[in-house]
Write a protein that binds this DNA or RNA. Sequence first.
DNA 1: CAGTGCGCTAAACAAATGTTTAGTCTCTTG
DNA 2: CAAGAGACTAAACATTTGTTTAGCGCACTG
Lengths: 217, 217
Amino acid sequence: MEDLTTRARIRDAAIAQFGVEGFSASVRSIATQAGVSPGLVIHHFGSKDGLRAACDEHVLRVIRDDTTEAICSSTADLFDRLAVAEEHAPLLAYVAQTLLAGGTLAVTFLEHMVTTAEAYLEAAVAAGTIRPSNDPRARARYLVMASVGALLLHLRLNPPVDGSFGTALRSVADVTVLPVLELYTEGLLTSRNMLDSYLMYVSDSPAGTDDHHRAGA
Amino acid sequence: MEDLTTRARIRDAAIAQFGVEGFSASVRSIATQAGVSPGLVIHHFGSKDGLRAACDEHVLRVIRDDTTEAICSSTADLFDRLAVAEEHAPLLAYVAQTLLAGGTLAVTFLEHMVTTAEAYLEAAVAAGTIRPSNDPRARARYLVMASVGALLLHLRLNPPVDGSFGTALRSVADVTVLPVLELYTEGLLTSRNMLDSYLMYVSDSPAGTDDHHRAGA
DNA sequence: CAGTGCGCTAAACAAATGTTTAGTCTCTTG
DNA sequence: CAAGAGACTAAACATTTGTTTAGCGCACTG
């Protein structure tokens, strides 16, 4: 399992180190964890930024290739199946750091999740299991942002003490499933007043910068 | 407006700088922005950590004292009134960084918001405007985590380019209001199957570590 | 076999960091 | 006025950072 190229070993060490320490992790700590000299990592990747770019690329590739695809769609939805990916723990930790740091990979990844979620929701609406929306794209975006945001916040406030990313995810799911299910099936409000008056408002107003909001039938 | 103690000026500069650059902002940059020498900031606060502690304390005090109290409760709920606090923009940016960094202030602040939200929800349930929950505390926690998480994520991915925190908040609200209102009034799912079966499941199971989940009437 | 390239290390380097030191200026206080 | 205290600065210090340099050892190649 450990007969990788030295370059790949450095990359994996970097992903792991970036995942737990954030992107301020030093080249030296990465080199140490990979069992090489600091000079070598820069010899292979040109610079620390080059190393990070290689990590981004690799993470993105793995996620796209692998059946990890499933993770994305389920994350946007429920957290249940997330714990499946215990094996990819370092990758997920890296992605979490990326999202918190907000780089190019972050928007790429989130946009991908939004699109996936939108397609999933559209299919579910067609199948009749999910209610339609006045702005499916905005709904998909919000659901992804809220789910991922809540997950990241939770992980930040309750960091995986024992180092196990999987158990941390599971504990998040434990506290989250019930409220999410309640909210998704019953909503929160008892009357339609706020929604209806808002829909009236946006349909009347000359619409500011965007034309997303359209009061449907 | 600018006739503050030098110490206070340094503190405010630090809050501003930490807010935009994160906590990796250098003592020198803070000193420059405050118009003093690097040595002075450490003369006043002992160390960079001391400075950060002073910032935490000050931010927390301002938020508790001020009528900014209102912000907390509304954040947990809708984003509308958030834009009111344009004046407190540096404070809010600092809080955002704190939450993203996950320190003591972060849990204090979030816990406070959860408690406030729980009380608000309970009152609304009593008033009949919000549906009851099987686990009010967990619901309040999730709503806060999701709202704040979505907000932080959005700000991270669409950083305030023109430097105006307020317009950034408003743009977040624009994209968020409709999905939130839809979700809160109609929910997402068309059937109660998932929720009901989950409630059955947790009421049957011997209950793992906690006894939060209780299938009510 | 000579040589050339490459993986790799040890050491040095330059820049930036938090912090310390020594000293200056100013203001209060005896 | 003398003395001391504290705000404040300029400069140095130690450490850590990313990166460079010089060189070693081994493989492959002519």
